[in-house]
């Protein structure tokens, strides 16, 4: 059985505007969209550009828009597909470098705005460091957060969000989700610092609660839940 893959191709550096290009691909068992892109690259068109790394749904490099919805190309299978035509486009709201490859710069710039790393206690001279991780297993924060720390920074949620598409100041789902995850770490010392960004012009109140982010996230994260938790309680 063959399938038609329609790929949104462009080459902004050479002034080529986005256009659909069709390829017929022979289906193999358990073939993923990424496999099909490789088949095109190897057998039909060596100029097709796309990004990948782990091929196991862990690195987030291969996120793209498949049949209108964000997903990981290495995880999307044709099996059981109702349609014989599948559309593949680059992520939205990010500058396209070529074909399916986008510049993730604006995604990570938003991430950086919330200091996406753990900030621990200042070590004092001459004092042996104490136990760094005293989180009571019964504290109750863990079940909520453990799901929200699975983000692989793929950019799917950013692409699916209509607010990000309109508002270039909005920090977006992934960054605000990360801010919430850190907020729940009682050992973190940067809560107050992050509040500036969390409740600023591009923070949680700029979100319109559309919820596309949670629907498309390949890692099962619910960024809107994090945004709502931050709207209900400011981190101390």
């Amino acid at each position: 059985m063959t399938i038609t893959l329609r790929v949104r191709r462009s080459d902004p550096a050479r002034g080529e505007r986005p256009a659909w290009r069709s390829y017929r691909v022979e289906l193999r068992p358990k073939m993923s969209v990424l496999d099909a892109l490789f088949a095109i690259l190897e057998e039909q068109d060596a100029t097709l550009a796309f990004r990948y790394s782990c091929r196991a749904g862990m690195c987030g490099s291969c996120a793209m828009v498949i049949d209108g919805r964000e997903g990981l190309a290495c995880q999307a299978r044709f099996e059981g597909a109702r349609r014989s035509v599948v559309h593949v486009e680059p992520l939205r709201s990010l500058p396209v470098l070529r074909d399916l490859v986008v510049d993730m710069g604006p995604f990570f710039a938003r991430y950086r705005a919330i200091d996406p790393f753990f900030v621990g206690e200042e070590p004092s001279l001459g004092q042996p460091p104490g136990d760094p991780a005293v989180v009571d297993p019964d504290a109750g924060v863990r079940p909520l957060v453990s799901r929200q720390i699975d983000c692989i920074a793929c950019g799917a949620c950013l692409s699916a969000c209509p607010t990000v598409a309109m508002n270039d100041a909005f920090l977006g789902p992934a960054a605000l989700n990360r801010a919430f995850a850190l907020t729940n770490d009682a050992r973190d010392r940067a809560h107050r610092l992050r509040r500036e960004a969390i409740y600023g012009e591009g923070g949680v109140h700029a979100c319109h609660s559309v919820g596309n982010c949670a629907r498309v996230c390949p890692a099962g994260v619910d960024p809107l839940l994090s945004i709502r938790m931050l709207r209900a309680h400011a981190p101390e």
């Binding site: 828009v65 209108g68 919805r69 939205r92 209509p162 609660s209 559309v210 919820g211 596309n212």
Partner: peptide, 16 residues
């Protein structure tokens, strides 16, 4: 023409 309707596939998008 069977081109995807993108975000409009998701109910939250219509609600908004």
């Amino acid at each position: 023409r069977r081109t995807p309707i993108g975000r409009w596939e998701i109910p939250g998008q219509w609600a908004w």
